[in-house]
């Protein structure tokens, strides 16, 4: 059971979890990761704009999900990524992984978000309180996180 969606609309973690579990009757574990727009006093933003490459994005997410399914013997997974303009506190991305036991579910969730960050064609732009904006540069830690798998 593989569910992949890219859209501007928000998602409901509870509803998505229930839907994945309903489709994975043999699951004994469901792990999740939610990425949220962050604004801090040291680095305040008013919004985050997310752009993607339609077509390639879905294909890349599908490849990442297929790899996770085979590496961690997943029963199912869900990848939802929002696009467009989002405000601090709003959801960006959801990863759900269902497996027989906790370790593969937890490991697959980490694998999925690490590879999504480094190999799916999304780009973030930060909008600042003074109205200026800047495209986000990838952090070295993102590549390191993906390379540990």
């Amino acid at each position: 059971m593989r569910r992949i969606r890219v859209h501007p609309d928000d998602f409901d973690v509870g509803a998505e979890s229930a839907a994945l579990l309903a489709a994975c009757k043999q699951a004994g574990a469901l792990a999740s990761f939610t990425g949220v727009v962050r604004s801090t006093s040291a680095h305040p933003i008013t919004a985050l704009y997310l752009e993607h490459y339609p077509g390639m994005t879905e294909a890349a997410l599908d490849r990442i999900a297929a790899e996770a399914e085979s590496r961690f013997a997943l029963l199912g997974c869900t990848l939802i990524h929002r696009i467009g303009t989002l405000e601090p506190g709003q959801n960006i991305v959801l990863v759900l992984a269902a497996a027989a036991h906790r370790q593969p579910a937890l490991d697959a969730t980490g694998f999925l978000i690490d590879f999504l960050k480094t190999s799916a064609p999304f780009w973030k732009k930060e909008i600042f309180p003074d109205g200026t904006s800047a495209w986000v540069f990838p952090r070295d830690g993102d590549a390191q996180a993906a390379s540990r798998w």
């Binding site: 990425g35 064609p121 973030k124």
Partner: peptide, 10 residues
């Protein structure tokens, strides 16, 4: 053919 910066999703 597509050209773009390093990806920054997630």
């Amino acid at each position: 053919v597509a050209f773009f910066p390093p990806v920054t999703g997630g």
